[in-house]
Write a protein that binds this DNA or RNA. Structure first.
Length: 562
DNA sequence: TACCGGCGCGCC
DNA sequence: AAAGGGCGCGCCGGTA
């Protein structure tokens, strides 16, 4: 049996399948099966399934208890290839790819479905049009040709495979859910916010803090309304331009302390309070919907439930099943290690070649012992900091690690000049949007700087992207995105390593992964994570001295991991 | 009534 | 110590 088969869904719920020949053509007649589960289950020797969309097919397979080893997600590949070809924004569906290939009218992509509690119900709705198997394979064959046409075909092939693996992991995580104790969550809310009064008013602690704020101002102030707060400070003779916490913290006024406390607790109530629990937790699991490759840098997003922003205090409610554990693994200083790997800066590679605290090592070399300064400077270089201590220390960083800083500087210059940048594996940033200056220039109207600023109010097509912001974006893109490349490979390797165990991947957040497993598997999982990280490093970046250590914690409760 | 931009803050 | 990059999301107030 060929190890690579294609599968496409038909309107009646059945599927067509065929083995792939060397040219991406069917190596045998197309066969009809009653459903994807039947088709896949009866072909255990298949090591990679080529299909239109993992999000369409795989949840149905998982619901039937069927997993696949690998897949090739045609629509994920199309998205990556369009980006690489500088055609960001063109419709990315298989149907659109086919139309481009055949020269027909290109259908727009279906609209994104908004977040919706209880996503289970929508798992089976088809997203996007069905494409007949032979057409799907025509698109697939064309994609293979386009991959070969890229600057680094081996990397692009790896990226497409990794993105496809990410789609599988995301679907499996969506099915598993994060173990969640609603009773513990309610206890935490009660501890923080106090009792709720009948009638739906604010919980006791919030009401008390609001009263304290009002008392401090000498009049009724709504602490949840920024405009009201700004006005109240103005009446007290204090000018504030916003009510952001860092700005309030510098003020000397009795309202500041209760106000900041109120904002913190208010945030928890609206974002992760009782109604969140009602909406997103069912049967002892928190079920957000993970979307692999949901951001331009390749980081994932979640749809609903604010899953990537769970406040630390609320993590108390993420508790393993009885007899099970959570293995919480966090990549240590991921971004500077990735910068070392992609820039090949000798000094930074040497530092990143050790598993010990990278910021401390950088500091020993460049800042005579101040770890905090070193961390600020490194992150400032990666983020494009424009002022403050990080900038001051950038000079020292540049002296010690010239190639690393030059790498992100070059990415920033590319952005400022309107060029595209790519991650290590070839994920490409979107093009710059039109700015005021572009629009004015195209219109041939000479304007002074003041007039140009004023024009922002009305010029059609204006987007708030100036060249400098663009530079900061591309500077960060190459590091954040290459880190995302690596984490995809990590997830793929870890998934393979635990496939015959009871362990399940239940959570992923940029540089942190949680595995839920029986207590007796925990140590094996810890080892698997370490090995997967090193394998991912070699696969992604090739031979490199850079190490990618994880800090792992085996805990019953997520909150105990730090 | 529905939609949208701005705000502010949670996480990395 | 400063306010730089990527997101999701709930609230508010303005507008259609």
């Amino acid at each position: 049996m060929a190890d690579r088969w294609a599968l496409s869904s038909a309107e009646d719920g059945g599927v067509d399948v065929a083995p792939l020949g060397p040219e991406g053509l069917p190596a045998a007649p197309v066969r009809r099966e009653a459903g994807p589960a039947e088709a896949v289950r009866s072909r255990p020797g298949v090591t990679r399934w080529v299909w239109r969309s993992t999000a369409e097919v795989y949840p149905r397979l998982l619901a039937a208890g069927v997993r696949v080893e690998r897949c090739y997600d045609v629509e994920a590949a199309e998205t990556l290839l369009l980006g690489h070809e500088g055609r960001y924004g063109q419709p990315r569906s298989a149907a659109a790819a086919l139309a481009r290939l055949r020269g027909g009218p290109v259908p727009p992509d279906p609209p994104q479905r908004p977040a919706e509690p209880g996503a289970q119900s929508s798992l089976f709705e088809p997203r996007g049009a069905h494409v007949p198997l032979t057409d799907l394979l025509a698109v697939y064959a064309d994609q293979q040709r386009r991959i070969e046409a890229t600057a680094h075909p081996d990397r692009m092939r790896l990226l497409v495979a990794a993105e496809s693996a990410g789609m599988l992991v995301a679907a499996e995580m969506n099915r598993a859910g994060l173990p969640w104790r609603a009773d513990v969550h309610r206890a935490v809310l009660h501890d923080l916010l106090g009792e709720r009064y009948a009638g739906g008013g604010e919980p006791r602690r919030l009401a008390e803090l609001a009263d304290e704020v009002s008392a401090a101002f000498g009049r009724r102030v709504r602490p949840d309304l920024p405009a009201d707060v700004v006005k109240a400070f103005a009446q007290a003779g204090i000018k504030v331009s916003s009510t952001r916490r860092w700005e309030l913290e510098s003020l000397d006024h009795p309202a500041v302390k209760p106000l900041i406390e109120y904002k913190k607790l208010y945030r928890i109530r609206v974002a992760h309070g009782w109604s969140w629990l009602q909406d997103w937790v069912r049967d002892g699991r928190f079920r957000p919907e993970f979307l692999a490759g949901g951001t331009v840098t390749g980081r994932w997003v979640t749809n609903g439930g604010g899953a990537l922003q769970i406040p630390k205090v609320i993590r108390r409610a993420a508790v393993a099943d009885p007899g099970w554990r959570l293995v919480v693994a966090d990549a240590a200083q991921m971004e500077p290690r990735v910068l070392a790997a992609i820039s090949r800066d000798p000094g930074l590679m040497e530092v990143a070649g050790r598993e010990t605290d990278l910021y401390q090592s950088v500091s020993d070399r460049a800042f005579s012992g101040d770890r905090a300064q070193a961390k600020l400077a490194v992150l400032g270089a990666v983020y494009g900091q424009t002022s403050g201590d990080g900038l001051k220390n950038l000079a020292a960083l540049r002296r010690r690690f010239p190639r690393a800083v030059a790498y992100v500087d070059e990415a920033a210059r590319a952005g400022e000049e309107g060029r595209l940048v790519r991650t290590w594996l070839g994920r490409t940033c979107p093009p710059a949007t039109r700015t005021t200056d572009d629009a004015v220039e195209e219109a041939g109207i000479p304007l002074t700087e003041e007039e140009s600023d004023a024009a922002r109010q009305w010029v059609p097509g204006y987007a708030s992207t100036d060249a400098r912001a663009r530079g900061r974006f591309t500077r960060n893109f190459v590091v954040q995105g290459s880190a995302a490349d690596w984490t995809l490979l990590l997830l793929a390797a870890l998934r393979q390593a635990v496939r015959d165990m009871a362990a399940e991947l239940v959570f992923f957040q940029h540089d942190e992964v949680i595995v839920h497993c029986p207590e007796e598997e925990a140590e094996t999982v810890v080892t698997a994570i370490r090995e997967a990280a090193e394998l991912a490093g070699r696969l992604t970046f090739g031979p490199t001295p850079v190490r990618f250590p994880f800090t792992t914690a085996v805990v019953e409760c997520y909150a105990d991991a730090k």
